[in-house]
Design a protein around this nucleic acid. Structure first.
Lengths: 204, 204
DNA sequence: TTTAAAACTAAACAAATGTTTAATTAAAAT
DNA sequence: ATTTTAATTAAACATTTGTTTAGTTTTAAA
């Protein structure tokens, strides 16, 4: 792995556990095993390093639901099922990055970065909106509040993700339980959300 | 208002918009219109001031759902309706404080504070769990995943609350729209969540 | 009115911060 | 083999950080 990338990954790790202002460039340099000056040398500043971290990771989160809109072999609810599983998979396996994004989003300095982040998080929103809208127009779905239905889907996953402590307390698990690597949790979350969305969306 | 309280309120405001490490004691002192030394004088340290902020605000969030469990004049779903409205009301009118709590929760230093915060956030969880459980036992509710149903309720509200930017983008609103003071949003969120929970919980 | 405690201040403190400098080593190009 | 560019280093830079000090003013008690 290139040294530049090692720095980015080290920064990702530290930013996610200690926050941006809570992490010093010296800590990042130590974690990456490089000289402090290398950060200015490669990225120009701590802030620009942060932006590089976001860009680097965001590239993994490319839009994948766009194709789904015009897919005719799946019913609308089957598409929703697929979206739910993808969303859970992504968010759980990128929990560190999710923490960074949401934390930055809740802060009010660096407004242009906030804007970029909300774009990343909502990148997949439009296709899903259309899928729900089509489901409604075709009579397959009830006339639900589209935006808030989306909010519910994302919010359910995200709320569990807030912290391992929260997750354990919500689920009543013991100290040792590591929520974000747990396969059973993933399945449980998937089944709950799918069932929830079916009763919410499908005509009775 | 006592000077000590002015400091706490100033700290709340700054911590919520700039984060704990992103806010200096000098900024807090300036915002409160007091000498920097007063913060050490009253609270001992910046960290202890933070704890005071949390304590001070947490006292407003006393448990209010405990009585609801043994209330016999309301049906289970009516209790859920009440809980939804209360939760929305509380979270929206304390959005600054909610930001602080969730941000701290997603960080991994100050573990004992994290624990205290998750307790505050989940303080009302147990009575709600029991209400759902009773609803299931009485045959009024479907056999849902209790903990994740709760997660959905809290997560839906919380996800909108993440930031005004997110909220605007999700709802497709213009720049000027102030989500957290908006009455219409409150109503829309309330209706969506109630409807969602009814189709999820009630036997078909 | 005197005394004691509390509230408040400006200045100083050491430590940590992000960044730059100037020098050196390594790699690539000529 | 020589030159040029890139990578890397330790040290220094100026600020900012949270906190303390030592002194003053205000308030309350005796």
């Amino acid at each position: 792995m290139a040294k530049k990338e090692i720095i980015i990954e080290s920064a990702l790790k530290l930013f996610s556990t200690k926050g941006f202002e809570g992490t010093s460039v010296r800590e990042i340099a130590a974690e990456a095993g490089v000289n402090v000056a290398m950060i200015s040398y490669y990225f120009g500043s701590k802030e620009k390093l942060f932006e590089s971290v976001v860009e680097h990771r965001a590239s993994f989160l490319k839009g994948v639901f766009a194709d789904l809109v015009n897919n005719t072999s799946l019913s609308a609810i089957e598409k929703i099922d697929f979206i739910i599983d993808q969303t859970i998979e992504r968010k759980l396996s990128n929990s560190q990055f999710q923490h960074i994004l949401h934390r930055e989003l809740s802060l009010e300095h660096r407004p242009q970065l906030r804007d970029a982040i909300s774009d990343i998080l909502l990148r997949n929103m439009d296709p899903v909106k259309i899928i729900i809208k089509n489901g409604i127009n075709d009579g397959e779905f009830n006339q639900v509040d589209i935006e808030l239905t989306l909010t519910t889907m994302l919010g359910t996953v995200h709320y569990l993700l807030t912290s391992d402590i929260m997750c354990r307390k919500i689920l009543g698990k013991k100290e040792g339980f590591s929520p974000f690597q747990n396969k059973q949790l993933k399945k449980r979350l998937s089944e709950h959300t799918k069932q929830l969305m079916r009763s919410h969306l499908l005509n009775k």
